Deep mutational scan, measured.
Amino acid sequence: SAVVMEEGSPGEVPVLVEPPGLEDVEAALGMDRRTDAYSRSSSVSSQEEKSLHAEELVGRGIPIERVVSSEGGRPSVDLSFQPSQPLSKSSSSPELQTLQDILGDPGDKADVGRLSPEVKARSQSGTLDGESAAWSASGEDSRGQPEGPLPSSSPRSPSGLRPRGYTISDSAPSRRGKRVERDALKSRATASNAEKVPGINPSFVFLQLYHSPFFGDESNKPILLPNESQSFERSVQLLDQIPSYDTHKIAVLYVGEGQSNSELAILSNEHGSYRYTEFLTGLGRLIELKDCQPDKVYLGGLDVCGEDGQFTYCWHDDIMQAVFHIATLMPTKDVDKHRCDKKRHLGNDFVSIVYNDSGEDFKLGTIKGQFNFVHVIVTPLDYECNLVSLQCRKDMEGLVDTSVAKIVSDRNLPFVARQMALHANMASQVHHSRSNPTDIYPSKWIARLRHIKRLRQRICEEAAYSNPSLPLVHPPSHSKAPAQTPAEPTPGYEVGQRKRLISSVEDFTEFV
């Protein structure tokens, strides 16, 4: 048969007729292969192709491409040299491709048809291009793949890379869960390890502090508590009631339409708007009261037996805890006409967050109470924005700035309102402590230090009264110190430094 060459192609190359033996071998191979691939376009007849790359030819070592076609129900084999250009295909004639002069020997084609199974398996396991790669995943090629499931790999992101949580363990979102698992493993320790309690022994800490320079003076030496005195035992138990972190309780009120001037209507609300609910979820963490331990979680007086509701929101960081007394989460009882059960919590909070959804101005004093010092007013606006402002009593104007209003988005509203309420509550605590000038409020841990110092002074006084020969370590507060001759004046800087060093040991009130 003659071949018409394309323009620009090399000279004529004689194409030899395939021997009958080659056709029989390739026909047997075509019957084993699956003929249901995917359909081509209507211009080209339905056909199945599979590209198999052999590394070497037997005796020649030339890479070839073998295409199996099922045109007219008769499979045909096409061998081509890759750099050459194939002729145009037609549905009426068999596929013809040019070969190099080196394939002119018909014996070479017979060798190609009689490829060993080793070469076929190696060509099938190679990388296939384009559409033949999808075909190689079918059941027909499963014989050339190794048996057994593939090893499982770690989760992959859409980009093909490992997620960040699997790369950096410290930033993994499941870090707290692993800590819980470690605690569970520790709890399952053997009885021999049960006595080993991690941490620092208080006796060891005391020993280090006792021999430090801070205890060089007799006034700073630790003293032993009497065991037989019940009054001192009660004082030590009272110390446990003062937490070592700051605590805040903040009221949250929802004002519906037409309720801006009605205290009873505001306290009777059992739910609010959708934006109000989203605002609550951002204030803190939802907790169930019956599962809380009052000595570990500050509840601000809420009952854990269901008297004040089942849930509330709280927030904490390293040095403070805040609980929100939310009116809509507290039960509304029919027998309580004046809502006294709610007001006994909300009316005693220094700061209230008022979500004013009424469309009218909310005035300070609508919720009557002796300790309502500051109101954080949240007014929802259009386009997911809110107006946040402050209202306070006249005696609080020096501590709280009420002249600045803020426009905040719904997303950042819980954070801004919480921070403003916490700052206002700190100012309210300082303002409330002014009624007792001898006990200015600095912080909870300073209050613990003052309680310890008062307890020490009482013990020293009782020891001096029981044994008059012992001198008083600290003179009583009601006694007057003996007159001392004025010492020589020293520079102001040295006096300030000495006073600062003494105050650092005794108390921190002056620095606050």
Rank of each mutant, 00 (worst) to 15 (best):
L329F: 15
H316G: 15
V378P: 00
Q429A: 10
D410H: 01
G272E: 02
I407F: 05
T379P: 00
A487C: 10
A447F: 05
H338K: 11
S389K: 10
Q321K: 12
Q497C: 10
C392I: 06
V304A: 10
K249R: 10
L239Y: 07
Y383N: 05
M396Y: 03
N425E: 04
L224K: 06
Q293P: 13
P442G: 09
V408P: 00
A487S: 11
M396W: 03
G300L: 05
P471W: 06
A483C: 13
K444L: 06
D349I: 08
S469E: 14
Q497F: 09
H325P: 03
G398E: 06
R275V: 00
S268R: 10
W315C: 04
T332W: 07
S504I: 07
S428D: 00
D308A: 12
D439N: 11
E270C: 06
G398A: 08
S435I: 10
V354D: 01
T379G: 01
H423Q: 05
T277M: 12
K342C: 05
H271V: 13
D303P: 08
G398K: 08
S231C: 14
N269M: 02
S443R: 09
V323T: 05
N348M: 12
M420W: 05
E257T: 08
G258R: 05
S435V: 09
F508C: 14
G306N: 12
L280R: 01
I440G: 06
F279M: 07
R275L: 01
H375N: 15
A405R: 11
P476K: 14
K296Q: 04
V388R: 01
Y245D: 05
K343M: 15
P331Q: 06
S428K: 01
L299G: 15
L470V: 14
M320E: 15
E307R: 15
S466K: 09
I407Q: 05
A327N: 04
C305A: 12
I502C: 13
A447L: 11
E288P: 09
S244P: 10
V473W: 11
I502L: 10
D334S: 14
L455C: 08
V388A: 01
T312M: 10
S479L: 08
E228Q: 09
D240R: 05
Q310A: 09
L224I: 10
T247N: 05
D318R: 04
D303V: 03
C314N: 11
D217V: 13
N412M: 05
I326Y: 02
G398L: 12
I446K: 11
T366R: 03
E494L: 07
G301R: 07
S235K: 07
L364G: 15
V400H: 03
P476D: 15
G300Y: 07
F232G: 06
W315A: 05
L286F: 06
M330P: 04
D349V: 08
C340I: 14
A464D: 13
C340Y: 15
E218A: 07
H248F: 08
H474Y: 11
Q241H: 08
S428H: 02
A421I: 01
R344N: 07
H432V: 08
R275D: 00
S268K: 09
K480E: 15
S244E: 15
I367T: 04
A427P: 01
D295C: 05
E270L: 04
M320D: 15
D349M: 10
G284W: 05
P475E: 14
Y383K: 03
I377Y: 02
T328E: 03
L501S: 13
I440P: 14
R434Y: 08
D336A: 10
C340P: 10
K444D: 15
L289Q: 15
Y245V: 09
V374S: 03
P294W: 06
V252K: 00
N425S: 14
E228V: 09
A405E: 12
L399P: 03
P468A: 11
Q293K: 12
K290H: 08
V376F: 00
D303L: 02
G369A: 11
H345E: 08
N386S: 13
F311N: 04
H345C: 08
R418P: 01
D246K: 04
K368A: 14
H451I: 15
L455V: 07
V304K: 13
S244G: 14
Y313G: 04
S469T: 13
A251R: 05
S358A: 05
Y276E: 00
L399Q: 05
I446L: 06
N220A: 15
H345Y: 14
D291K: 15
D217H: 11
H474I: 10
S469W: 08
Q457T: 11
L472Y: 14
A421F: 00
G306P: 13
L253C: 04
I266G: 03
N372R: 02
V416D: 01
S229W: 12
H345W: 13
Q457F: 06
K343R: 15
Q230W: 07
S235Q: 15
P414Q: 01
L264M: 13
L501P: 14
T366I: 09
F311V: 06
K296R: 09
V304Y: 06
F232R: 06
H375M: 15
L364D: 11
A464R: 08
Q310K: 12
C314M: 10
I266L: 03
G282P: 00
K290M: 05
Y493E: 15
E228S: 07
A265I: 02
L422G: 00
V236D: 10
Y441A: 12
G496L: 13
Q484L: 11
S409T: 07
S433G: 06
L390D: 00
